[in-house]
Amino acid sequence: MMSRTLRRIAPQLVTLAVLAALISVVFPGFLEISVSDGRLVGPVIDILKRGATVALLAIGMTLVIATRGIDLSVGATIAITGAVAAWSISNGLGLAGALSLAIAVGLVAGLWNGVLVAIIGIQPIVATLILMTAGRGVAQLITEGRILTFSHDGLAFLGSGDVLGIPVPALLWPVTGIAVALLMRRTALGLLIEAIGINRRASALAGINARLLLIAVYMTSGLCAALAGIITAADIRGADANNAGLWLELDAILAVVIGGNSLMGGRFSVAASLFGAMIIQTIDTGILLAGFPSEYNLVIKAALVVAILVLQSPRLASTWIYWGMRLRNRRAADAARIREAGE
């Protein structure tokens, strides 16, 4: 079991190692971690912390993509839930109130997407596009168009605090990821989600409640976006409806793809998507540390992403395996037929 998981995420681990080596060339102290004021400090820690939003989104996005869907609304959901958290904390609802309200709003956003996809039957890309475009407007209504700042140490702790020297966001995504991965694999959810992603009609005829599962999956994505929204707002002690989570849905999708998950749905690995998210953040942080002029940022990122996708290319690899197997099967079938003919 363990070795299978390891084999699944091996390409991502190799990619991370290669990236680390590359960045170490242009920035020698890349892998150094020191302790300052009881906190761990170093580029690697920054990556674990800064990659938290995309990693959280990638958890939900992995499940949505496994059902052959896509959730474009997560960036906007970050803006809404961040705004809700900031609004509630500055209106005296307290930490528990603000967190539960923000999470509830994230779940409602997921419910909306899920109902559009599973019950009304709108294509996922269209259904979630609605909230993607409208959501930021909702967030702006909450913040009244400005950056809604707050000063509440409890909430700020979630963005910039640390536990045992490790930044809270750097702890939040692995915990969420492990929880979701265990939930998927220790129950039958993973199998059922994969089944509806591969063949929804056959799954429904086998008695799987595809609608309910789809709604649950989009709600999970909304929940992950809410967590990302909370730490985004907590990080800067304010909710910026215009910019929070902007275009992050695309980074999340990219993380899932770099994680070797197929956009056509089916088999998925949450762990691989999380490593995908870390790969993206390693590139981002590496570019910042390298000190190139900012005009080159996107070009370098694009070149690296293309190189990674081509080189590790899980689809390419599986295509080779598939054709290899087809060839073997065919030879076996031919041999069988020749035997039959001979008899």
């Binding site: 220790r186 129950t187 089944a195 799954s203 599962l213």
Partner: peptide
């Protein structure tokens, strides 16, 4: 698959 679906997701 069908057996699992009828047992529900929580009882793998």
């Amino acid at each position: 698959l069908a057996l699992q679906a009828s047992r529900g997701w929580a009882r793998p």
